[in-house]
Design a protein around this nucleic acid. Structure first.
Lengths: 358, 358
DNA sequence: GCACTCTCTTGAAACCTTTCATCCAAACTC
DNA sequence: GAGTTTGGATGAAAGGTTTCAAGAGAGTGC
């Protein structure tokens, strides 16, 4: 079935100004249906004002010519796009894809589509995507930023592109933000470990440019202070990213320490790190939680199914995404919109990796 | 810092034709810099042809006006976009995000950006995204389709939007495709289980509209035939989707069977199902692999870290994505492009979930 | 001092759609 | 049957960028 032969190489020697021999436009449809441009446009945008007969003719013409509306032209004239974007830190982290699911849910309900972009924790990539999206005049941008003080990020709203920050609470008043209290999350994790009697506790996370990494560490320190211990007691293992592979690396470093200096518990900045750490430690012969208790963060679906089910700090992932999208929609449709900062509360889910088999 | 107050509600009674009081355009920049439109455009697109002095003036004007190029207009005139899209089945499945990583790698090398879309195994969503992307005139579409016979999908290339099918080998000659031999993958899994002496084997997967589900099952059947067993021996547990939750459901059903009718091994259409199945079976008291051996598919990162490390059929995920993107780039830049069908070979990775602790 | 290059810059046309004021004809009103 | 309303169709203008043929100066060679 060589459907495409008909269209292939309609002319080898291209005409001068024609960059693409693309599809038929409204003009061609109008000609074929024997009506004016305006009528075709009406069929597209206000079908109810055109008589059924005419509409049928136009629709037939569109079908037979394979008409595809040129969204660039539409947008140029109409000034608005029906797209919103979510720039996430890492598509490989189920936490973010769950947030994305919430975003898509809310967007779909409002008749919008969502484009996903991944910065992969790379500031240049993030910047490139922000530029691109602004140039595309998307309706709005949801972002989990690497650096929340980026000037690029702050300039966007004043130029007409609404921004909602997800999973970070911004100090800046020019955006809405939706976050989970990461300091509290860190406290929950460490208090739990202290209650279990651990004294040498490690914090595994990095790089220290990521807000979540910092807040969760600060929460951990605060829990130590509250318990009357010096914050210096927290042994910090800095990683290069929040991935399973980096978690394994941290496991390697931990397991290499002599038993009397090795921490008895580790709190990881996210579940990917925790899973990597867990895997490496187990394969190097450390028992979890007897030799090393582990607490993760995010409570992704895989935390429960892990080799040793993982204690973790749970965040309302989809709700986070949905709320963020709703704030964005409000901002772009409600003239009386006021920026809000929504903060959810995390919750500790205790499993075998800290509590043992009891 | 009320940065946005300056811009807020510049005029309550909007002027008639102005849909958005958006940014300054080339025209404003040209006026501010005291040059013509064409020169501004040259600074943007061919900076080398404009004199350093003029360029500096224009750049200063752009900065002070906060100029943001209107991509819709650019695209309308230039006819081409610098974006390519990957429509994936499920963003929550690490397999697809790994493929996406490969795509982004290749795209970045070519100076393009990637928009990710998720059909969530919903044909309507997929169709809506395809329409949207075609209207956006993206440079090309990479897709793991739900239904590879969709007429919408087949029409795209003849209308000017190149399509590369990922993780499916299409019978159709109008696309390139990049796939892994799923029939062989199914065979590998079942042969392995047969070698271990299993007789009652279940296949867990669904819905049966998804190509991968069908091929892997067909491979399983073929392995049975090769071993001289009737294909009816394969006990099929059909799921509603390829998710951890559905895997748990299947586990529930399996564990409910009396021991003498329960399969001794299960081959799952992907790792998410396998992880869910594993988790549910373990929590219901079945031992893996003694009571039930499990083989997954994809060998995602979490398979190795599972409660019982998972035997799985590995696919070259990133390579898949990178190859697909490269084919797409070739199609849209090379006039002598010929459609190709690239097929990779999967590989069985044996772990504890079938082999026991030996 | 004239003809000629070469380097930059210019202005108008083109891309495709949407919008809106206007127009037309047929159907009512009295 | 003159005037009014109404349901539909029309066509020109606008939106911001890119392109390209042509123009303007400055410099060079003889």
């Amino acid at each position: 079935m060589s459907v495409d032969d008909a269209e292939a190489l309609p002319e080898r020697t291209r005409r001068r100004r024609t960059p693409k021999p693309h599809a038929a436009g409204v003009k061609a449809v109008a000609a074929a249906a024997g009506v004016s441009l305006g009528t075709v446009s009406n069929v597209l945008n206000r079908p109810e004002v055109v008589s059924p007969l005419t509409r049928a003719k136009v629709e037939a013409a569109m079908a037979s010519l394979g008409f595809v509306r040129n969204e660039s032209a539409r947008q140029l004239r109409a000034g608005s796009s029906r797209i919103l974007a979510y720039v996430m830190l890492d598509a490989g982290n189920p936490f973010f894809t769950d947030v994305a699911k919430g975003v898509e849910e809310a967007a779909q309900a409002a008749g919008l589509s969502v484009f996903l972009c991944t910065s992969s924790e790379d500031a240049d990539r993030e910047a490139a995507y922000l530029d691109l999206l602004e140039q595309q005049r998307v309706q709005g941008i949801l972002i989990t930023p690497i650096d929340q003080n980026s000037s690029r990020l702050r300039k966007l709203p004043s130029r007409g592109t609404p921004v909602v920050v997800v999973d970070r609470a911004l100090d800046d008043a020019s955006h809405c933000s939706v976050a989970v209290n990461d300091i509290l999350g860190g406290e929950l994790a460490i208090s739990h470990l202290l209650e279990l009697g651990h004294e040498r506790i490690a914090y595994v996370g990095g790089p220290n440019t990521i807000g979540q990494v910092i807040d969760r560490r600060d929460g951990a320190r605060r829990a130590l202070r509250t318990a009357g211990k010096p914050t210096a007691d927290l042994i910090e293992l800095t990683t290069g990213a929040l991935t399973v592979a980096e978690g394994r690396g941290a496991g390697q470093r931990l397991a290499g320490l002599p038993a009397d200096r090795r921490p008895t518990a580790a709190f990881c900045a996210n579940d990917l790190l925790a899973l990597g750490l867990l895997q490496q430690c187990v394969s190097l012969g450390l028992r979890v939680p007897e030799d090393l208790a582990i607490v993760g963060y995010d409570d992704i679906e895989f935390a429960e199914a892990a080799a040793v089910p993982l204690t973790s700090v749970r965040q309302p992932r989809q709700l986070l995404g949905r709320t963020a999208a709703e704030l964005l929609l409000d901002e772009s449709s409600n003239p009386d919109h006021e920026h809000q900062r929504v903060t959810f509360t995390p919750e500790l889910v205790v499993r075998t990796s800290t509590r043992g088999t009891l």
